[in-house]
Structures are given as structure tokens and as C-alpha cells.
Design a binder for these strands. Structure first.
Lengths: 210, 210, 210, 210
DNA sequence: AATGAATGAGAATTCATTCAT
DNA sequence: TATGAATGAATTCTCATTCAT
């Protein structure tokens, strides 16, 4: 008897929440969590200040809402792990491509969320547990499997996975910091990174590919 | 009439500035730029609120001060580029080790500075131009030289350099986000990363080392 | 065209108003006029926020509604003035008993109304004219009559009546302030007060009674 | 080392606090706790809004400050209990006169404090314990002593003391509610009340006095 | 009539910055 | 120069009231 689950109402509510989260993502990304005001978000969302509080208990809860959406989309993507049956190099390139395809379109979300996450203990813990740990776990399993079949040489899986995650996160961060080279050439990155990580810098090891 | 170049005064002033910047770094890292108050900084520095404004025009200028110190230390380190005469793998490992030795002790500084830099247009530009661009430039030259002597296989220097910079920045960020694995094993990182970047994941290409 | 005097409608309307006033009395008494929200009242009444505005023009009008009910019940009780034909002491005891029987069950109403009445000029005037003045008037007439027949010694009727009214109001207030003694022993009060007011504290004047 | 007890600073601080409490008392009495804004208080005190927060942590703390002052003045007055050596009637008249002399000049304070106290659980408890209980205790002891020496007839001390306290509180409340008779004739009250409470209403028991 | 989401005015509170001492 | 009280602009959040459904 707590709520009558009116399906139409639920739809309207979901739409309103999306409207607010979209506006908040944009504003947080532009000005940062603290410089962004509820008024800013309301203006961009085209609603009154107070309305935001019908859907979120506080400004921080709005950020949490963004984090949850990110979490959900992350979870969804985790399932799309490339098939391991194929040639290893292709697998690896596919993995990178998929990760980046997830990361780059969410660049705005990261810009909105990351700075505050870095600075807010509670959010940090949440983000780490809900976004990073699952990503690491899935990736570690996958790498372990590849490593077991001798497809890649024996490595320190935990650190390697973190290195690759860090590589992508770092490149995204550099782009957010204004690096034009990355911004303009990010489509080339999967290939370059595959080459770098798979072949290494060591001379005389080029592999033909594509 | 612009300045009275009293050498003693200058010393005292420099000391006070350092005192304030140290306190601010600590407080910014702990609470973030916005949650940190001038009062917090003053308390940690052991001075009165108002005194800060004798040395810095605003709270933002204090952050800029931290950024400048970071810039200076970066510049200083740039000159310590490893000698390129040696074995390539050692050169590369040395390079990574040195970069990380610069980065990790400054983790607190990064935590203090990065979130706000990501969010503040002006700081972003400054940080990019004064910290990142010089780092990239030096590294690109160095890699170009190595590449020219055939020490490493022909690569896309610009992207590779950014990849490596991003890798380190990303790992640091992951650590700041609370990853225990990285925090506990960062001393192993130079070796693991050298192996990863130099040898690649490709099987059957291990090189003996160390 | 001002009203459609549909008797059924009137009944329904009266019932709704009662429902709302009951809820409001409870909530105002618990949290005070300002801390109580229209949402609180609506929830307790089991209706929607907006519905309250079909029956009352504003939150303040709801309080006025409570005041009017109090006024009506006061008026009703005024007619029940004890018969003056009896023994004076009995008359007096009966009077006190009746006043307290009116006051105590309405303790919640007083707690709901009094604090705001003390603070709101308009309500104050209303309350004074509609509740207190009639009470004083009736009581003064009655005391005057008793005094004229020599039943009580010559006194300052106006002040005495106010003293007795104040005594009851004050005791109620002390109870509202949390005094346990009054709360637990209020049934003894009529007797104690009669003894106090009728016999006085002066020694050697006890009257046998009951 | 928490604070340097600079006597001049303490004086200035105390003066400021008094300035704020005086202003707040006036404004709370006029408009009630909730309708009174920090801006109102600041304006009356002739200072900026923010300054209030240098001396009080919140609006509620300001009210608590008023309560504490009332408490202190109450405590001070408790010591001035009339000497019991005298004629009983005089003692009683003196007691009432003194109580009223304490109460009436503080009418504004009561109007500021009472409505909110009646409505705020925490304040209620505080007020009861710090203001009422001490008053009751002192008065009970005094009455007990008088009763023991046969000066007054045997009574229920606890209820009588509460009745008298309620009588005064009630009369004050009636005055706050706008009763002109009480306001204009309150100087006569001690005598009238003494007569009422000491002699009682019972006819033929007048005592000559004064 | 009933509903409850939307509105936006209003209030408490914070805090960077100023400035008299 | 150092101090820290005073300032007041700016912000978050609440809630009485409105109104489309």
C-alpha cells in the first residue's frame, strides 16, 4: 500500500528524472559540481528549481543519480565482452575498441562525475565498488582465460588489467584536460594501443594486421 | 617602486608562501577545493585567515600557487631525462621509474589540483600548457631520437607518448580512487609496465631482464 | 447564486472540514503551527494536499477553523453555568470542576492554538474577543450575583475572575510544559483549588467538606 | 591553549551577544520565532546577517541564549526569597510582589520564548528543568517551612505551589493575549491575589491589612 | 471534487574577502 | 604585517499554494 505502481506515472517520472540527469550532467561537466547551481540545472532542464527536489533529495543525490546511470550502462556493456574464440590480437583490439566506445561517448559524464568523485569520500567508495571493481573483475577473468590458453604470455593479471584500465582512463583525462591530439585522433587509438600493448615497443616484432 | 628587494624579506615571504601552499595542498587533497575553506587552510598553516590574503590575492590564486610549484618541479625533473646511450630496455625502464618517482610522491598534490583543474577552464589551460605540453615535448623528442636510431620500432610518437603519460596519470587516478592493489604494489609497476610496453602481451617474446 | 444549499453536500462538506480540523489539531499540537506542513495534515487526514484548499483558503484559515470550533464549544459550555441557588462552596467547586472539564480534554487544542495565538496579532484579537471576553463576561455576572447576595465577601470581581481564569490557563500551560505532578493529579485539582480559593491559606479557617 | 582569555575581547563579545539577544527578544516577541528572520534580528541589532553566526550557531541557539539569560535572572531572584521571620500575610504578599516584579518586566522575554517552548520538545525540557523546577523547589521548601511553623494551614504543598505559579503565568499569558484590565491594573494584583489566596473567597473572614 | 506535481518566493546558513586595530 | 570580526552575496532547500488532469 506504499505506492500504486501506475505505469503511466512511472513513465512520466522516469522521463523527468532523465531530463534532470541530462541537464545536470551537462551543467556539472561544464562548471563542476560546486560551481553548478540547482538554478543552473533547473534552467537547462526547463523546470523550476523546486521540481528537482521532487525527484532528488539533494544536489548530491542528483550526482548519485548520474553515477547510477553510468553504473547501469557499465553493467550492460560488461556483458558484451568480445568472444574469446578468435585470434588473440583481434580479441584484444576488439576489447579496446569496445571499452573506448563505452568511454568516449560518456566523456561528458566522466567530466561531470570524476572531479567530485575524486574529492568526496562517499562517492569515491561508491564509484569504486560499483563501477571499477566490476570492470576489473570481468577483465581479470577474461585475461586469465586468455592467459590459460597460452594466447598471451604469462603476466601479472591484476596489475595488467589495472594498467589497461588506467591507460584508457588516463587518455580520457588527458583529453578532458584539453589535449587536441587525442581528441582528434581517438579513432586511431584502438589500433595504436593494440600495437603498443600487444607487440610492444621492442623492435623487430611487428605483426601484420588488418 | 614596485618592489623593495630586501633579501631577508624575500626569504620570509617565500617561507610564508610555502607554509600556506603546504597547508592548502593538504587541505585541498583532503576535502577538495570547494569544501576546503580559507579558515581550514589558515588553521593548518597556523596563521590567521586574513594573512593568507597578504600572500595570495584569492583562494584560486592559492591553487595556482600549488600548480606553479608542480610546474617548477616538473621542469626540474625534465632535465633529468635518462641518458639515451644505454641499452634501450634499461632506458625505458629508467624513464618509467623516474616518471613514477616524480608522480607518486606528488599524489597529494595531484589529488588537490586535478579535480579542480578538470573543472576550471582557466586552470585547465594553464595546467595543460605549463605541465603537460612540456612533458610531452621532451618525451616526444626523446622517443623520436630513440626511434631514429632504430632502438624502437617505428611508432606514432605523439600518440605513444600520450598513451604512456595517460597510463601513468590513469594509474595514479585509480589509486586516488581507492584501488588497494595499485597502492600496495606500485613499486612493482615500473617493471611490470616496462615488460608490458616493451615486450607486449604477444606470447613467445619474453626478454630476459633483471 | 452564492450557495447551492444541498443538504447532503453540506453534510459531506462538514464531515470533510471536521476531518481536516481534527488532523490539523493533532499535527499542530505535535509540531506547532509552523513546523506542521500542509502535507503533514493531509497525510493524517488521509487526503491529498490540494484538497485542503477546497475547504480552507490557507493554512492560517485552518487554524482559524480550530479556533472557531473552540469558540463554539466554549459558547455551548457557558450556558451550563452552575445554578446559583445552592451552597456557595458547592457552587464554586462545581464551577471549577466544569471549567476544568472543559479545558483539560481540549488540552491538545490549546497546545495547537495557544502558541500561534500568542504570536499572531490577528489571531490574538480574535481569540480574545471570541473566547476570553465571553468567558469573562459570563463569569463576572455570575460572581457579581453571588457577591450581591452576600455569598462571597466583597471582592474585585474583574480581577478575581481573571485570576481564576489565569489560574486554570496557567495550570494547563504548566502541564503542557511537561509538569508531571499536574498531569497525574489533575483530578484532585478542583478540590485543592476550591479549598485554596475559598478558604484561603490563612490558618484556622478550615471548613469541613465532602 | 584553546583560547587566550583576553578580558577586553570577552567584554566586546559579551556586549555583542547582548546586542543580538536584545534584538532577538524584541523581534521574537513581536513576530514569533518562525516569522522572525535572521535578517530582522540583524537589522534591529544594527549588524549584518552573517555576524549573528559569529556568536550563535543557529537561529535556535539564539533562542536558547534568551532562555539562558532568563534562567540566570531567575536564579538570581531565587536567592531574594522574603525573610520568613515576619508576619505571614506580609511574607506572602512580599513573595507575590517579588515574583511579579520578576515576571512582568520580562513579559517581552516570555512572549518571545513561551510560544516556541510550548512547541519544541527540546526547549520544553530545557525550560522546565532550568526555569520551572528550580522555582518550584525553592517555593516548596519555603511553603513547607511556613506550614511547619503553623503559619499556614496544612495544605498540599506541591499542588499549591503549582497553582500559584500557574496563577502568575496564566495572568501574564492573559495579559499577553491582550487583556487590558490586567495590563492596566497589574500593580494592584499582588494585593488582590494576597487577599484572594490568603483570606479566600469565604465571607466574614476579612483581615485588616496595610 | 480530488489529486499531487510544479512552482518560486523566501529563509537559514556559509564563507571568501575586507579592513580597522 | 598579522589578526580575526564583520560583511553580504550567493546557495541550497522548504513548503504554501496553484492548477492541469
Amino acid at each position: 500500500m506504499t505506492k500504486t505502481p501506475d505505469p503511466i506515472q512511472e513513465l512520466v517520472t522516469a522521463a523527468r528524472r532523465k531530463q534532470i540527469l541530462d541537464a545536470a550532467t551537462q551543467v556539472f561537466a561544464e562548471k563542476g559540481f560546486h560551481r553548478a547551481t540547482i538554478k543552473d540545472i533547473a534552467r537547462v532542464a526547463g523546470i523550476a528549481d523546486g521540481t528537482i527536489y521532487t525527484y532528488f533529495a539533494s544536489k548530491t543525490e542528483v550526482l548519485l543519480g548520474i553515477l547510477h546511470r553510468l553504473n547501469e550502462s557499465t553493467e550492460r556493456e560488461q556483458q558484451l565482452m568480445p568472444e574469446s574464440g578468435q585470434d588473440l590480437r583481434s580479441f584484444f583490439a576488439a576489447y579496446l575498441r569496445q571499452r573506448m566506445a563505452l568511454l568516449w561517448p560518456n566523456a561528458e559524464v566522466f567530466q561531470a562525475v570524476l572531479p567530485e568523485v575524486l574529492v568526496n569520500e562517499e562517492l569515491r567508495e561508491l564509484y569504486y565498488q560499483q563501477v571499477l571493481v566490476p570492470t576489473f573483475t570481468v577483465a581479470e577473468h577474461s585475461f586469465q582465460a586468455q592467459s590459460a590458453t597460452g594466447q598471451i604470455r604469462s603476466i601479472d593479471v591484476a596489475l595488467t588489467v589495472r594498467a589497461i584500465a588506467g591507460l584508457l582512463l588516463g587518455l580520457l583525462t588527458l583529453q578532458l584536460l584539453g589535449d587536441e591530439v587525442i581528441a582528434q585522433r581517438w579513432e586511431e587509438l584502438p589500433e595504436v594501443l593494440t600495437s603498443l600493448l600487444f607487440d610492444g615497443l621492442q623492435p623487430g616484432k611487428e605483426t601484420t594486421h588488418e
